[in-house]
């Protein structure tokens, strides 16, 4: 349309966001996944504390070990979070739009003086708000548990890294919320959109790490006479793996919570000459290291939200 519309597209945005957040906070669905996340978090952190106490030795970043230490058979807190945060986000968003269609509330809500933009953006904001509250609570819980059981306060560097980790987790959850909401606008049935989102989740968290080497092997075969082809194959494999937000999140947390991480790719020995192995990087350099990963996740979030937005704007309201 060439004609200009009058009125703010943000009218009603905060009303919708707060209502959505309140609905989520009261819904059994969210309670269930949150209990699951909480139990795994406490379990893995408790196990990590046991492991840390058993290890004699000095560590500058003891608090960050809380998040990354794994004790068999439990994986680390970070691993659990990477696995379960998408589930929380999908539970929040899979029926955002098609649920309104099915309850026949969409046309009634849109007949109020708001634009469609406000409904979709408001629902996204509401979901993000819930995620932010949950992640913050979880982070504080883990930090508190660490202080109680280790008897040590975290250093300022550890808090900064912890907050950056919190932000990365938030963006990662936002990506999956956008995935779920995109499916909820494209697919008409909530059950189908939930399955689509869960399929994407399984594909990227479980199967993608297995698929990436296979695809890389086919795309860039290794020539035994040329060692550089092996390097090339690893590069390709890494590029493919990084399509998955799970990989990006994993690399981000690795660099943030493990200050000794110097590179997320291949390094040649000559590149390491003069480096103090095991010496921690300052926070700013760790952030510089994960900057592309973080930017990639934010870009994915924006692209997915745009897909949902365009598809919603083009839809006919009538059910």
């Amino acid at each position: 349309m060439t004609s200009r519309r009058e009125g703010s597209p943000f009218a009603g945005l905060s009303t919708i966001a707060l209502k959505e957040a309140a609905d989520h906070m009261n819904s059994i669905r969210i309670h269930l996944v949150m209990v699951l996340v909480l139990l795994t978090a406490i379990g893995s952190v408790y196990a990590a504390i046991g492991q840390i106490k058993a290890t004699v030795g000095e560590d500058q970043f003891l608090f960050l070990r809380l998040f990354t230490t794994a004790q068999q058979p439990l994986p680390s807190f970070v691993f659990f979070l990477g696995f379960l945060v998408p589930l929380v986000a999908i539970a929040l968003g899979f029926d955002a739009i098609n649920g309104e269609y099915n309850r026949r509330t969409l046309s009634r809500v849109l007949s109020q003086p708001i634009y469609r933009d406000a409904l979709l953006t408001g629902k996204f904001m509401g979901g993000l708000l819930v995620i932010a509250i949950c992640l913050l609570a979880l982070w504080l819980l883990v930090t508190g548990l660490g202080m109680l059981l280790l008897g040590l306060p975290p250093s300022s560097e550890e808090i900064t890294r912890g907050l950056a980790f919190l932000f990365a987790s938030f963006v990662y959850a936002g990506v999956w919320l956008a995935v779920a909401m995109a499916f909820s606008t494209i697919v008409k049935s909530p059950a189908t959109s939930a399955l689509c989102a869960l399929t994407a989740w399984l594909l990227f968290t479980v199967f993608w790490p297995m698929l990436a080497p296979l695809i890389a092997g086919a795309v860039a075969p290794v020539d035994p006479l040329d060692p550089l082809t092996a390097v090339h194959q690893i590069d390709v494999q890494q590029a493919i793996a990084r399509i998955s937000p799970n990989t990006l999140y994993g690399e981000t947390t690795l660099a943030l919570l493990n200050p000794a991480t110097r590179s997320l790719g291949l390094l040649f020995t000559d590149q390491l000459s003069g480096a103090l192995m095991g010496a921690p990087l300052p926070f700013s350099l760790s952030v510089a290291l994960i900057w592309p990963q973080l930017a990639g996740m934010i870009a994915a979030l924006l692209v997915l939200f745009t897909i949902a937005y365009v598809s919603f704007q083009r839809q006919e309201i009538r059910a």
Binding site: S3, E6, R104, R108, S111, P113
Partner: peptide
Amino acid sequence: PLRQPLAVKTRVGYLPDQIGFYDH
């Protein structure tokens, strides 16, 4: 209604066919 939808929708009430409310 195309150019000033918000002003129109402020002053016009609409009861759709098979009206739905938030059940919870």
